[in-house]
Simulated assay, not measured.
Amino acid sequence: MKDLKQRGSLAFERVTKRYGKSVAVDDISFSIEPKTLVTLLGPSGCGKTTTLRMIAGLERVDEGRIRIGGRDVTELSAAERDVSMVFQSYALFPHMSVAENVAYGLTVARQPKMQARERALDALTLVGLADLSERSPSELSGGQQQRVAVARALVLEPEVLLLDEPLSNLDARMRTRVRDEIRDLQLKLGLTAVYVTHDQEEALAISDQIVVMNRKKIAQQGSPREIFEAPADEFVADFIGNANLVDGEIRSTDGKIANCLISGAAVDLPYSGKRTGAVRIALRPEAIGLQVADRDTSLIGEVSRATYLGREMQYTIQSELGELFVVCHRLDQIFPRGAQVGLQLKAHGAAIVGARA
């Protein structure tokens, strides 16, 4: 019998997956609490989709254990696991109506036809498509087709909902809308969901927890704010938010705050370590302020590129720190290419990410 308190929980215990001599996922461990949405985030080839497919039972585990709801499912087939998957390609049957697509899993499970249809219509109501139940998938927009795919997964009432880059085929505006709809549904229904994406903004917007993967391993797991504001290393800092990685020096620390020197400019940064000396520091594009350079400016740069994007300016700055990417939301003062600017380093948006080699 399942432990209802653990229903929807998920745990990987030192899981490894190989394809021949090639390692696809390397000794990873993490856990997911029930009723939370966790994103597996990382660049192409990092192992995130393979990890999702192992949860679904579509890939076998070579080493380690997977537990869903406290139950060891490592050796169980996909059909024996209480999970549903939303695929990147939607995978809708073109010869079936929307309602028939949603009811398909119930029909395969030999549910009575009328009962399967009623449950399918309930699921379509959840995603706001009940009035389109008799249309074919080809008559729907991309966003509507994605919602049908979500309804088809939800109708099975899974213990864990899996989503494999579900928005990648949508345009930017529709991505935001469907993303928010998926998050609202997950919260409303109290689902446990695992969501794969390579889009950092998407992960920050939708997640309770983010598992950042790199080179087949887990680089960091934490809340969106923890990942963004306290990256574990240079890879996480750069992948989440296009950080500028610069050299700095810790002059002193009280265990919580480190007084740092960055090319002559002093800044206090959060710090949990105890060492002092040479370090690498991540500066978010928003953590660098620009002003007109004058004789009192300690850190000066030159604008090599200025891009107007309506709500913000994006600058590329050449400086003694190296090339810096800067985002400025002040539009009342725009610096043209070739302008000399003073650089102000802000504590918010800066983080120490490791020792300097």
Rank of each mutant, 00 (worst) to 15 (best):
F228T: 10
T39G: 00
Q88H: 07
R275M: 14
E33I: 11
T50Q: 04
V303S: 06
I182A: 00
A282M: 04
V61A: 03
A103P: 00
E75S: 15
E13N: 13
Q111N: 13
E13M: 11
N242G: 11
F228H: 14
L37T: 10
A103K: 06
L331Y: 07
N259A: 13
L163S: 12
I262R: 07
L41K: 06
R183T: 04
V327E: 12
I257N: 08
T49E: 03
L52A: 01
A219Q: 08
S168H: 09
R173A: 13
R225D: 15
V148Y: 10
D268L: 05
Q145P: 06
Q144M: 00
L185G: 00
K346T: 10
D296A: 14
P231N: 01
F12I: 01
S207P: 07
D122R: 15
V127Q: 03
K346I: 12
T297Q: 01
Y90C: 07
V194D: 01
E139T: 13
D164A: 08
T316L: 15
V353L: 00
L37D: 06
A78T: 07
P112V: 06
L187N: 14
R305E: 11
I334D: 00
I262V: 13
D131N: 13
K216I: 03
T74A: 12
E33G: 11
I317H: 04
L126P: 01
F325G: 07
T36P: 06
P43R: 09
D122P: 00
V327T: 13
S263C: 12
D247M: 13
V148P: 04
N101C: 05
G42L: 04
V102H: 06
A203W: 07
E286N: 04
A153W: 02
A123W: 03
L52V: 04
D122E: 15
D122A: 15
A79V: 14
E226N: 01
P34V: 05
L41R: 05
T176L: 14
G255T: 09
Y308H: 04
L343S: 06
Q144G: 06
E100G: 10
I281L: 07
L106N: 02
A109Y: 03
R175E: 07
G310S: 08
R53C: 08
G354W: 09
